[in-house]
Simulated scan of single mutants.
Amino acid sequence: MTRILIICLLLFTACKKDAYLTDGGLSSAHTDLSTYDYLAKQQFQLFDTVIMIIDHYNLKDEVNNAKTFFAPTDYSVARFLQHKLDSVRQINENNRYSLDDMYNDITVDSVRQYLFKEAITVPDAKETAVTYTTLGNTPAAILKIKQTDPAYYTWSKTPVYLLYYTRVRGTLDNSTTDPNDPDADTRVPCQTTGILTSSGGVLHVLTNQHVFVRF
């Protein structure tokens, strides 16, 4: 019951912290912290569970050495746990699903798919998808999309771009691909981009609505 309450609390709190999605960016892109320490010490504690997962797989050095990390938040992990809990409870309403169960269902490469050997920044990103191979040896594509919502231009006319991580299934989809196709690529926006850490990496944070490792 305690684990269920934690999952529900995380999902509820995520809705209350939507302001984090539009925080206006950072006054400075640079931090004196390594990628790992930045996540561990983040003031809103958005990555506490993510850090537990990184520690479980002994990925601290890999996270710090990666040139780019598209970091999921704790809410993404909570969404995965809730999805799996709903699934096992269709079999037996008394079933439970914990982090330990998750470790049995995913692999270390499930986490490495968020890590890249290339430095990926918004200024250098293209408006057409560019394919990469993650450190988890999975295909991905990155692009930036210019935003047209007038809310982005209340105080400035400077073009605003959001960065998107695309989980590629098979070959990169084209514009005619049916989005309802179960094999369609999944595109996830970043809520924060371009944090330059002292360990030499670029840190982007995926939206809270992302489902950890599932895409």
Rank of each mutant, 00 (worst) to 15 (best):
I6N: 09
V213G: 01
Q113K: 15
L172F: 08
S175N: 15
E127W: 04
Q209D: 11
K126S: 14
K17G: 00
F212C: 02
D183C: 01
K41W: 01
F47P: 08
G136H: 00
K146N: 00
S198A: 15
A119E: 07
T128P: 02
V168A: 09
S27K: 12
L85S: 04
F80S: 05
I195L: 00
T186Y: 07
G194F: 10
T133V: 15
A71M: 05
D109C: 10
L26H: 10
Y132G: 02
A14D: 11
T154F: 05
H210Y: 14
L163D: 07
T2D: 10
T186H: 08
F215A: 15
I6E: 14
N64F: 03
Q113C: 11
T154G: 04
F80A: 09
L172K: 12
N95Y: 04
A140S: 11
I54N: 08
L85T: 07
H56T: 03
T176P: 02
W155I: 08
Q191V: 15
M102D: 00
A125L: 07
Q90A: 15
N94F: 08
Y132M: 03
K84P: 01
Q209R: 10
D100N: 12
N95M: 05
C8A: 15
I4C: 04
K84L: 03
F70C: 09
P139I: 06
W155T: 13
D32F: 10
K144N: 02
N208F: 14
G200I: 03
P123R: 02
T186E: 07
L85A: 00
S156A: 09
R89S: 04
F215D: 14
T166W: 04
C15I: 12
S110I: 02
A129S: 14
D55G: 09
A29S: 14
T73Y: 08
N94S: 10
L5V: 13
Q113N: 08
N137K: 11
D55S: 11
V205L: 05
L9Y: 09
K126T: 12
L21D: 07
D23S: 13
T197R: 13
L162Q: 12
D74Y: 10
A66C: 05
K126I: 05
P72K: 07
I106S: 01
Q43I: 13
T73S: 15
L196T: 08
S27G: 08
K84F: 00
K157R: 13
Y132V: 02
A129M: 13
P72D: 04
N95P: 01
T35Q: 10
Y97F: 15
Y97E: 00
S27M: 13
S110Q: 01
G136F: 04
D37W: 08
D23W: 08
N95K: 03
L59P: 00
D74V: 12
E118T: 09
A141W: 01
L172T: 07
P189E: 03
N65F: 04
Q90F: 11
I54W: 06
G136Y: 06
L206S: 02
F116G: 03
R79N: 01
